[in-house]
Design a protein around this nucleic acid. Sequence first.
DNA 1: CAGTATCCAAAGGGATACTG
DNA 2: CAGTATCCCTTTGGATACTG
Lengths: 117, 117
Amino acid sequence: MEILKGRTNPTIDRQLALKDAIELLSGKWKIVILKSLYLHGTMRFKDVMETSAGITPKVLSKELQQLEENLLITRTVNNTKPVSVSYALTDHASKTLPVINALIEFGLIHRKKIKSK
Amino acid sequence: MEILKGRTNPTIDRQLALKDAIELLSGKWKIVILKSLYLHGTMRFKDVMETSAGITPKVLSKELQQLEENLLITRTVNNTKPVSVSYALTDHASKTLPVINALIEFGLIHRKKIKSK
DNA sequence: CAGTATCCAAAGGGATACTG
DNA sequence: CAGTATCCCTTTGGATACTG
């Protein structure tokens, strides 16, 4: 994240905010994972795997770590045998809901547009 | 874009729409370019270069081509010497405005969140 | 179950120079 | 002016196998 010194310009702030948001959510899987957690609530590793069809454990692991670093999800190790781990959205993550909904709306419109070509 | 045969499921439709939208808009520059065209209206190649600070001509050229393929911008060659080329948003592109605004809102919120850590 | 390790291919993207 | 060509490095992410 680019850091600004001193007084800032609102237009530039918005540009940076836009780039931040894109950086945070970009990648093939991050938004799919968030969406899945919205739909199903707290989930374990294997459940996220199943609801994010096509992802491999290595990639899922990495994406989850990044989401956690960005305060969008929490990771909880449960005292079971064998161990299970729960992932849940943070309150902060709920702020991404408008983004996800807007993306879906656009995607639906775009599909119609392309089909009619 | 993944094509579905026959009857579809609305939940799956939305998942695919989401992946489409992400694919369409992902990359470091595409949304920045769209945003710039929203702000300034029709622009020439060099103007897009200047308003998208840091991009190189090779990358800009490629991004513009992809946006054109996806029906989000138009490319017009003007009969001047030396030639100039105008890029403008299509009507379809206006459908991405909610996405961009949602991203900016989230980015601004996220910046505050991170700063207060 | 919840990952990690290794290997590898493809894509993204930057620097620089050049062209019609 | 509006790109293209070349080179090259980094990142992304898939396949597969393995571990505590």
